[in-house]
Design a protein around this nucleic acid. Structure first.
Lengths: 206, 206
DNA sequence: TTCTTCATGTAATTAGTTACATGATTGA
DNA sequence: TCAATCATGTAACTAATTACATGAAGAA
């Protein structure tokens, strides 16, 4: 049982889904904090069936079969048990930031390009979350009775995207004042770092 | 060549390292945005050598051999070329948030425990970044001439951790007012969501 | 001397990805 | 009726992890 398996199990606790529907639902928001390849999702629920936590039903669409999954009582028990231990904190993989770290090996334009891409990315994510929010407000979404938990998650995602966007905007300003990316004595860098170390006790900046 | 390979290559551009030193350096900060198992780092530089981007030197410590790697000119070229294309945006994997999403399948205490763990995690990360910052200010770090790029990266990491911490604090307040985690009509949730959707044009909240 | 921690890897396993394949449906 | 897209998977591959092993150095 991986976290991915429990994600499927959690969705199955809400209703029965075909695998394709599960994949679509993941696209809607979960993939932003639990990203998995679509094709992988066709494999995962089989584990649940093998463990007796879900049942699979073969249905026919034309001549073509599809599989619909349903949670069992044992499945609900396993899900509740899993919720008892706090999960791991956010794990971030950020290639763009690696490129910022080694920016002196490249040109200033390359660095500005890297930061601009980060910003565009963050803006797109923020837009997506805002649209999802609008949909939840207007239609209530597929599970209107779950708005209370959905709002917690949505707010988190939006704040994350916004934090990235703000950083990128700030970094663009800083870097654009540099003559190039060459090593230098770090007077400005010192000021930046001291805002970080001191704001641990002070109020957040900006 | 994966991003991990380029991370090693980037470090080799700064000086020669033994594999153990590379692993230690990754622990210092890079693993917060490019996390890899320590043992994996012993395999990765071999690829660089095979491609002619680095050279390996066997040295002896007692009867025991160790490998020290050095970048080649071809390696510097490959690194610069890699910096030309903007990398991918932040990829987040956050099991804790999945547990928040399915919180109605568990108890209110479980949810509060999950959020508390997220907060503790974020506070620890923030502390680590602040300590790293202090070290950079006091000693200059191993590469004082690189303070300008290091400050960009450090600020990003700190802001991320702080955003998570703020969210967790806020979520604790919200959830503690709930009677339980059961599904409900979402008046409060609606207010939360509308701050998200509207603040896309307005100023950031709080 | 013994224990612990530092230092340096190897081997086995696995979770996950990319690439591919193909039937069903719908709109032009 | 043709093309595009929706829907449903399978197969092959690989990047990365966990678990293990062991020598060196320093502390008790």
């Amino acid at each position: 049982m991986t976290t991915t398996t429990y994600v499927i199990l959690g969705l199955l606790a809400l209703r029965r889904w075909s695998t394709y529907e599960l994949a679509q639902q993941m696209k809607r928001s979960i993939r932003y904090y639990w990203p998995r390849a679509e094709s992988h999702l066709y494999e995962e629920p089989k584990k649940l069936v093998a463990l007796g936590l879900a049942t699979a039903t073969r249905e026919d669409v034309g001549r073509r079969p599809r599989t619909v999954y349903e949670i069992t009582e044992a499945g609900r028990g396993a899900l509740t048990a899993w919720l008892a231990t706090p999960g791991s904190g956010p794990l971030v993989e950020f290639e763009g930031l690696v490129k910022v770290l080694f920016a002196e090996q490249g040109t200033k334009d390359q660095l500005l390009g890297t930061i601009a891409a980060i910003r565009a990315d963050a803006e797109a994510a923020r837009e997506h979350h805002a649209e999802l929010g609008t949909d939840l407000l207007v239609t209530g979404g597929p599970f209107p009775e779950r708005l209370h938990v959905n709002s917690l998650v949505l707010k988190f995602m939006w704040e994350q995207a916004e934090a990235v966007r703000r950083w990128a905007e700030w970094a663009e300003g800083v870097v654009s004042e540099w003559p190039d990316t060459a090593p230098r004595t770090g007077d400005q860098a010192r000021r930046v770092i001291s805002t970080v170390t001191s704001s641990t006790v002070d109020a957040p900046p900006e």
